[in-house]
Simulated assay, not measured.
Amino acid sequence: MSGNIVTEQLTRAGQAIEHDSFAIVDREAGAHRYTGAQWQIVRRMIHATADFEFNGLTRFHPQAVQAGLEAIAAGAPIVADVEMICVGLSRPRLAHFGVQTHQFISDDDVIATARAENSTRAVQAMRKAQRVGLLDGGIVAVGNAPTALLEVVRLVEEAGVRPAIILGMPVGFVSAAESKAALAAIADVPWIVTDGRKGGSTLAVAALHALLALAEARAAERA
């Protein structure tokens, strides 16, 4: 593994552009209420969207960063609501920690069950993830479907499912804000949420990349 910890940029020119971009984010964001590690996540989300409202819209469970870093170091699986999140993640970084990504929203059995039960594919995909044993101890990342997040919250509350951390960042107008509020009300499972309607798979990817970078940095410090 190379020493390329903070950035995925492989050339000096690319690294300089990314460095300058983060410096602009830091300067224009101004004051914030986040810890140093939390800010690494929030500023990468801002960097990915050019939306400074995430400085404030992003909230963290007190144990979120620690739980995320421990889960990555342990090679916990990432369960996403859509394929876009899986595709957007750095393969070398995932491989470094032995982390595998999973999404089931387009599986034939998920589609068939959603039709039979008049539910959504996102709901059935999360139920499948639970059946195959990926949610307990896993990293759940929801960036698109509020119904996926609502189902994960239900599984936590009613079935005792315990993911290592849940990233709740669905975007939209129907149940998006409500699903994130429901997640933020959970005390015994760590989470990161973006309040309100704003969200998206790009944000989930950015937050996961920040956690992967922080996990790499921590591992390098301990080496």
Results as ranks from 00 to 15, higher is better:
V161P: 08
T194M: 03
D188Q: 13
D195W: 03
A141S: 12
L155Y: 10
N144D: 14
E158M: 12
A148S: 13
I192M: 11
A164W: 07
V161F: 08
A177C: 13
A141K: 06
P146Q: 09
G160E: 12
L183E: 09
G172A: 05
I166V: 15
G172N: 13
V161H: 10
V189K: 10
L167N: 04
M169C: 03
V142F: 05
L183S: 10
L183A: 04
G172L: 03
A164S: 14
L167Y: 15
L183P: 09
A145K: 09
I192N: 01
I192F: 10
V189P: 12
F173Y: 07
R162Y: 04
F173S: 00
I186T: 13
E151D: 13
P170R: 04
A181P: 02
V142T: 06
W191L: 03
A145V: 08
D195S: 15
A145S: 14
I186V: 15
A187P: 00
V152T: 14
G160T: 05
A164T: 08
M169P: 02
W191T: 00
E158A: 14
V161T: 15
L183C: 09
E158P: 00
E178Y: 11
V142C: 12
A177I: 08
S175Q: 14
A184H: 13
A148C: 02
A148L: 00
V171E: 00
M169H: 00
L149F: 11
A164E: 09
W191H: 12
V161N: 05
A176P: 08
A177K: 14
A159Q: 15
V193G: 07
A148H: 00
T147V: 04
D195M: 14
I186D: 06
P146E: 11
G143S: 11
P170Y: 09
D195G: 14
M169D: 01
W191N: 01
G143E: 05
A159S: 15
V152Q: 06
G172P: 13
S175N: 15
N144E: 06
V171L: 09
I192Q: 02
A148D: 07
V153M: 10
E157G: 02
V161L: 11
W191C: 02
R154D: 05
W191M: 00
G168E: 02
V189E: 04
I186A: 03
A185M: 04
A181Q: 15
G168I: 03
T147H: 06
A181F: 01
V156W: 10
E158V: 11
K180R: 05
S175W: 13
D188L: 10
L150D: 08
V171Y: 03
L150Q: 11
P146Y: 01
L183D: 05
V161Y: 12
I186E: 10
R162C: 07
S175D: 14
K180L: 04
E158S: 08
A181D: 15
L167P: 01
I192T: 12
I192H: 06
N144C: 00
A176Q: 01
K180V: 00
E158T: 14
P190D: 06
M169T: 03
R162H: 14
R154N: 05
R154F: 03
A145E: 08
V193H: 12
V152W: 10
I166C: 09
K180F: 03
S179G: 08
E158N: 12
L167T: 02
L150A: 12
D195L: 13
